[in-house]
Design a protein around this nucleic acid. Sequence first.
DNA 1: GACGCTTTGGG
DNA 2: CCAAAGCGT
Length: 489
Amino acid sequence: MHRMERDTDHLESPAIVWFRGDLRLSDNEALAAACSHASLIPVYIRETSCSARPLGAARQWWLHHSLARLASDLENRGTPLVLLTGKPAELIPQLVKATGASTVYWNRRYDPAFSDADAALKAELQSDELVAESFPGQLLHEPTRLRTGSGTYYKVYSPFWRAIESGIENRPPLDAPESLKAFPGISRLESENLEDWGLLPTKPDWSGGLRETWTPGEAGARQRLADFLEDRLKGYSERRDIPGVDATSGLSPHLANGEISPAQIIEAMRDADTSASSDDRTTFRKEVGWREFSWHLLVNQPELAKKNHNSKFDDFPWLNDDEALVAWQKGQTGYPIVDAGMRQLWQTGWMHNRIRMVVASFLTKHLMIDWRKGEEWFWDTLVDADAASNAASWQWVAGSGADAAPYFRIFNPVLQGEKFDPQGDYVRRFVPELEKMPAKFIHKPWSAPDKVLKTAGVSLGDTYPTPIVDHKRARERALDAYKQIKDAA
DNA sequence: GACGCTTTGGG
DNA sequence: CCAAAGCGT
């Protein structure tokens, strides 16, 4: 068969659009490509027995709602969404056979755990004379392609950023297709019920705070972006560090679920006519850049969530202290800024970026617990849990990562609280038992005079924990441990 | 070969 | 002011 013939012929038959990490209709190249076909079959597969790490509970909650929105958005434009469970390598060919489709489109995902399987499926489909094509979209750059002058991947953010910065606005995002031509036999295809997938919590339903905080789905993502650009881009570079005010974009969970693309964000910001300074814009663009950098690292270092990027840390004497780990997880360390962060995470599925650094530093340095334990907890509880950002950022704080903070840079939880939450607004919101503490002592209640504690209704060790470690001693212990691996190398 | 690196703390 | 070190241009 001649290539030219096939290129026109295949448009006469339906195209399968395999949705994976891209739960949106706009800026979706795979979907756009399918629109030039006679009809299309959108499918989402709940993948079983694949090598990727299963989604954490918070992201499963999000996924349920995001898929529900995607299905209704597709329905409104003309086609249902087919839901299947199993192995794509079996299900996609079955779907091809059942529908007579000659084409399968999908957008690339970059988690190395999927790469081999996706490439193998593509090759298999193509060897059957089918068209199988993948498109970019989740990132602004192709993480495997970008190389330094000496041919290696980037290990330092600044040069990485300079390398992608200029090309960052080169891809104009696509509009959502106005209508979709459903495959005529689509309603007779086997499809499962989302409700049967068990993505939502049951026994205790802990999702109340998530529901109050978030609107999963493409429309929610677009709304949040619009609100951010209108209300919060101005002043972003300063205010983003203050956890007590709503100053960040809050787009991370939408990005993690592919409800919005980074190209859409960058473009919308360029068009946003606010009085935001160029500093505000650059700072935010660089945040998007960090996400790109993390994926660049993960793609080139597939073990990033498991292995120290700097192997010197393989000998670090981490402590196995389950009691301390649980206190950290539950927000019961006795350090208000740490506890506020951990409780925000549990209640809302999200934590302010600055506080993520503080709690991660506390776990890895004050408690000397392996960063992987923290990474796992975040993976399970964050609605924005992202395989690349989570691993890269934990290693950054722990000191073991690429371009990491030096290990000896140990955050002081009291000073961080006083500097970035001076009035204690953030602590008060998530640690209500300290609500009446005066600002002067809210980040160090143990140093408040008895009568201040009494007036505030705080009884240390009773209504609020005493610190589980002493800052000064913990700091010295961590630095001693670091000295061991430093001298050994 | 020089230069410039996200996010700090303590003495 | 110091606490590292090496990456990338």
